[in-house]
Structures are given as structure tokens and as C-alpha cells.
Nucleic acid binder design. Structure first.
Length: 351
DNA sequence: CACTCGTGGGG
DNA sequence: TCCCCAAGAGT
């Protein structure tokens, strides 16, 4: 089993920048970026990150806003916050050396069982198993698993553990992920060129398209949001920094909130800015309307120009509030949906 | 342990 | 247009 896969990997495996190094720091960064994120998306972020933060010391010493700015657009921002925290732990508790004991690695924020296995096998060739989305699919098909992988995690972990070869774990784990990413794909798996076609139970029973089984999810709720681009007399705009925990934690945004049933957008904006920032505004023209989908809900951002009438902005439901010039907006990390607002503001500003 | 947490791409 | 999914972890 191993040798078949390893032989395939040596010929067909992907060449990826984090496979050119054995620096556990660089491999760690790649593993975190690759959580729930495709290789193509990660590549430019990975290169820029290592330019900005070449070592764990650079990362530990950076301020969080710089870290979040480097992560801007990648999503799941807790990954960046945890990466930053973990770097500080490695400097303070491990003398700047990435730990090599599994228990020490999984103890770092943002690193679970799969990521720990990925790092330790890739960086140190330790025979530890992994179980990411690719491996779940490959192994589920290998044994023709008749239930969703989430219901059989123990069994899949045992199988992954049993398969890792003692002396070639690095290549084997990478090969397993490549197989899932390029051959044993969700749609149109290329079974005819698969090195594991012969032992694959799903292929032999011709059920590879039905495995892994998926559980259905409820339809996403849709929220209407009122958003304010508040201008003051100096042609500055008001932005606020979201709390550390929760959605988009630590990122900046344009203030606003959920429109209550039957409420007009203008009323929502005036109410939210009073509740969250204790300021009075006059709501003007609509700037832009943005539809955006998050993992668990959809939003429509109804963005309106506003004029600041009175009250010094207070950080009541956020961590910080600032007035900033249009030209300075790009220095702050914003969520993707807010990026469209910034573009719209710039178009107004030049005209 | 079910839920939360982004974004881009494919069918 | 809409659903599903992609190198998961934290709570």
C-alpha cells in the first residue's frame, strides 16, 4: 500500500513551496493557511507572509494589526490571531525553537490533531497520522464508508494511524493529501489513474461517487444590515475595531447593525450608531448595496452616507473607534465585504 | 458536541 | 441562483 502510493507521489506529486523547506516555522505557516483553504488561494499569501515575518521572532514581535493586515482576505481570522499568540508562546516557552513533542505542538493555539501531525511529519518525518478533508475522502472511499466521515472519526483516525509508514511519513502524508486533491476528488474522481484503485472498496463496488456521504444543512438565514459611512467636518470617516472574539474579530469595519423587522434602514442606522457609539448622525444618500455570504448566514449591507451631528464616538460595543482620512483606510485590516465599501468611497472621493 | 468561524470556486 | 466544498480548530 505505501509503496504504490509513494511511487505515484514521486512522479505525480505537486511541487509546492512549503515542500522545498524543512523549516518547521514555514511549514507551520503553510499548514495554518491551508486549513479550509485551497492551495491556489494560499500561495500568494504564503510568499508575502514569509517576506514580512521570516522567522518566529519577527512574527512574535509584530503588532496584531500588522498580522491581521497580512491575513486580510484569507478568512477565518482566528487563525491569524492564534498564529500570532502561538509565536509568542514559542519564543517565551520554547526558546524560539518549534517544539517537536506532539503534546507541546497540539497545546499551541490554532493547532489541532491534524495540523500537529502535518507539521511533525513534514518538518521532522515523524510517523504521526493526519486526517484532513482530503484524507477523510480518500480513506472513506478506500473502505467504502457507509456513513458521513464526521460519524466515524475514530475509525478513520485508526486507519490513518495504521497506514503511516515508520520511516517515510513525510512523503506518505503529503502523498495522501495530493491523491485527494488531484485524483480522488469529490467530483469526477480519476479512478483509472489512481494508484489505490485495486484495493479501493468504493471503486470495486462502483460507489465512489456516493462516498463520502454528506449530511444536509439547513438553509442559511439572511440578515439585512444598515451600514454607515459617517463623515465629519474634516472629511474623515468613522471606523471601529471589532471585539477580539467572534466573527471577524480584531478587524475594522464601518459601523452599523441589523435592521429590525419593519424598520427603515435610516432608522436602523441612527439607532445603531446611538447604541454602539453614542453619536447622532444625519443619514444621507445610499452609497452601495453589497450581498455577501458567510459560512452560516447571508447578509445584505445597505451602506449610506451619513453626516456627524454630535457626540464624541465611544467604543461601547467595539474595542476602538477612530476618525480616518480616505487615503488612510488601506492601512487597516477590513473584512472582504467592507473592501467594496472602500472602493466605492474612493470613487466618490476622486470625482 | 453541535455550533461558530471567511472566502473563492465549481457544478 | 444556489448549494457544496476546500490541508480544521475552538468552545
Amino acid at each position: 500500500m505505501h509503496q504504490t502510493l509513494l511511487a505515484w507521489y514521486r512522479q505525480q506529486g505537486r511541487q509546492l513551496p512549503w515542500r522545498e523547506t524543512r523549516d518547521p516555522y514555514a511549514i507551520w505557516i503553510s499548514e495554518i493557511m491551508l486549513q479550509q483553504t485551497q492551495v491556489k488561494t494560499v500561495l500568494p499569501y504564503y510568499q508575502r507572509w514569509l517576506q514580512l515575518f521570516p522567522t518566529v521572532y519577527d512574527l512574535a514581535a509584530a503588532d496584531q494589526q500588522t498580522v491581521l493586515k497580512a491575513w486580510e482576505g484569507l478568512g477565518y481570522y482566528a487563525r491569524a490571531r492564534n498564529l500570532h499568540k502561538a509565536a509568542q508562546v514559542i519564543v517565551a516557552q520554547h526558546q524560539g525553537q518549534f517544539p517537536e513533542q506532539f503534546e507541546d505542538v497540539v497545546a499551541l493555539p490554532g493547532i489541532g490533531r491534524t495540523t500537529a501531525g502535518g507539521i511533525l511529519s513534514a518538518a521532522f518525518n515523524q510517523p504521526v497520522p493526519i486526517l484532513d478533508g482530503n484524507v477523510k475522502r480518500v480513506l472513506a472511499r478506500l473502505i467504502a464508508l457507509r456513513q458521513p466521515p464526521s460519524k466515524a472519526l475514530d475509525q478513520l483516525w485508526q486507519l490513518s494511524t495504521a497506514l503511516v509508514p515508520p520511516r517515510e511519513a513525510r512523503d506518505f502524508n503529503q502523498a495522501l493529501m495530493d491523491l485527494g486533491a488531484t485524483v480522488c476528488t469529490r467530483h469526477r474522481p480519476a479512478c483509472l489513474i489512481c494508484p489505490w484503485r485495486s484495493p479501493c472498496a468504493a471503486y470495486n463496488q462502483n460507489v465512489q461517487l456516493e462516498i463520502p456521504m454528506t449530511e444536509t444543512r439547513a438553509p442559511l438565514p439572511h440578515k439585512q444590515i444598515g451600514v454607515a459611512v459617517v463623515w465629519n467636518e474634516q472629511r474623515q470617516i468613522l471606523i471601529d475595531r471589532r471585539p477580539q472574539s467572534g466573527l471577524l474579530g480584531g478587524l475594522w469595519e464601518f459601523p452599523g447593525g441589523k435592521i429590525e423587522p419593519g424598520e427603515a434602514v435610516e432608522d436602523c442606522i441612527r439607532r445603531e450608531l446611538q447604541e454602539e457609539l453614542a453619536i447622532d448622525v444625519e443619514v444621507g444618500d445610499r452609497l452601495i448595496t453589497i450581498d455577501h455570504t458567510y459560512t452560516h448566514f447571508k447578509v445584505t449591507l445597505n451602506v449610506f452616507h451619513c453626516r456627524h451631528i454630535g457626540g464624541k464616538p465611544q467604543p461601547i460595543e467595539c474595542d476602538e473607534v477612530r476618525w480616518v482620512a480616505v487615503s488612510d483606510l488601506e492601512q487597516f485590516p477590513f473584512p472582504k465585504a467592507n473592501g467594496q465599501i472602500i472602493e466605492a468611497i474612493k470613487e466618490i472621493a476622486v470625482s
